[in-house]
């Protein structure tokens, strides 16, 4: 029983970090990923399970932000699936129409699952990319913060 729980635990943990790196990879761009892959000096060989493909996702919203779901509109998405020599299958799903971005995201997703390379790549690629994305977000937030306003209500009328 204990063992089952720990397996589920580690699976959840695995999925959690995979979700994290896939989100980070989606928010970067082809140029950055190409550079990152070159820096790794791995030159991984891989086969396409699904070559890069441009399509759309229907974006859902909710009435009042919390109520009934409705279709807001579509967004372009590019996806790609690869299998690296070690046998790991990687998927890339990225907003926009950059096929190279989707392909590299899939390659990284596969490499990150490999016990041999994964931890090192997480540390040297995903972590810095994620920090950079956070920093960009923070920079935006500091500009936004300067526009916070305090209105004073004036008394109107005769007395």
């Amino acid at each position: 029983m204990q063992q089952t729980i720990s397996i589920i635990d580690s699976m959840c943990h695995g999925t959690k970090s995979r979700k994290f790196w896939m989100g980070t990879l989606a928010r970067t761009n082809a140029k950055q990923l190409r550079q990152a892959l070159a820096n790794l000096d791995l030159a991984p060989e891989y086969d396409y399970l699904r070559s890069p493909e441009i399509g759309m996702t229907m974006v859902r919203g909710r009435a009042g932000g919390k109520g009934q779901q409705f279709n807001l509109g579509e967004m372009t998405v590019t996806r790609c699936s690869v299998k690296i020599q070690e046998g790991f299958v990687g998927h890339g799903y990225v907003a926009g129409r950059d096929k190279i971005h989707a392909e590299l995201a899939a390659v990284f997703d596969a490499l990150l699952q490999s016990p041999k390379h994964g931890p090192m790549i997480f540390e040297s690629v995903i972590d810095p990319l994620s920090r950079e994305q956070k920093e960009k977000r923070r920079e935006q937030a500091t500009k936004t913060a300067a526009t916070k306003v305090n209105f004073f209500t004036m008394v109107r009328g005769e007395d």
């Binding site: 493909e53 441009i54 399509g55 759309m56 996702t57 229907m58 974006v59 859902r60 919203g61 909710r62 932000g65 919390k66 779901q69 279709n71 807001l72 579509e74 967004m75 372009t76 998405v77 996806r79 799903y93 977000r137 935006q140 937030a141 936004t144």
Partner: peptide, 21 residues
């Protein structure tokens, strides 16, 4: 948009978690 396939449907966006500008 009529030339593109639809890969799926997103989960409802959470506007409460918006990075507000």
């Amino acid at each position: 948009r009529t030339t593109l396939p639809r890969f799926g449907i997103s989960n409802p966006i959470d506007t409460s978690a918006m990075h507000v500008r």
